[in-house]
Design a protein around this nucleic acid. Sequence first.
DNA 1: TATGAAAGTTTTAAATA
DNA 2: TATTTAAAACTTTCATA
Lengths: 153, 153
Amino acid sequence: MSVRLDDTDRKILGALQEDAGRSLDEIARAVGSSKTPVWNRIRKMREAGIIGQQTVKLDAEALGFDACFFVLIRTSEHDGEWQKKFLKAVKERPEVQEAHRLAGDIDYILKVRVRNARAYDVFYQALISEVKVHNVTALLSMEEIKSTMALPL
Amino acid sequence: MSVRLDDTDRKILGALQEDAGRSLDEIARAVGSSKTPVWNRIRKMREAGIIGQQTVKLDAEALGFDACFFVLIRTSEHDGEWQKKFLKAVKERPEVQEAHRLAGDIDYILKVRVRNARAYDVFYQALISEVKVHNVTALLSMEEIKSTMALPL
DNA sequence: TATGAAAGTTTTAAATA
DNA sequence: TATTTAAAACTTTCATA
């Protein structure tokens, strides 16, 4: 923790976010420095946990994941036991790509990626059989306009 | 396009999703094959667009992005001109990490990542001054329970 | 599919500003 | 203290069997 970031660090993070497959040399050139210092900064930021998992973006549709739902969940149960069970269910299910606990009226939002509507129903039935929820609204995505993990550094 | 995927391809995709930083050798070992065939498969899947951008996950909180909103948007305007302007606005704004066009009552959902509530308001004011929207609901995330781009292959 | 050699990259260490 | 240089270890890429 607690690495103070300067301008060069931020530029490196920007370059990595954009394309983590570039060589050190290219990144160094892009941020106006050279290999070793850039390498040391990256190592420090990795150790500090600022730079996490390195991954690839796969084409969901080409791989047959044609359905994406945003699921709004209201619960009447707010005790610790219920919450623990719910978090566990959500973390374990690979269909759930995002899960957030919300402020206000709606308690949770999930982003669920499945092959088709039938697969969503299977997921939904499994979820409500594991944990009791008061009210569920599923919003079906017709079109993914944008999807990125990049932070607006 | 149209690459038929077998079991080995799927295993490779799984390995890359999990950690794109591993060497070919490691991936080959993990999927029970050897370097050359794995390399050829990856190249083909990249060419076909199945494997896309390579990126890193950054720690949003460590970098000072403390606020995340899901924004539900209803519009009264459904003509092409309006939609074009809206898509453009959403794609251009780096705060918008996800944008989907929905079926049903609510027309769009956005995921917006900003430094704080004030920054969200700046974003919101800028958006509604660019495109007219009928009704907006912002859901504030209190806790990110899960966040992954990985498909449940 | 496997082997292996050439080209390129990452990583470490030593030298320099 | 941070950067450049240099060299060893490792990876990717690709020709050939």
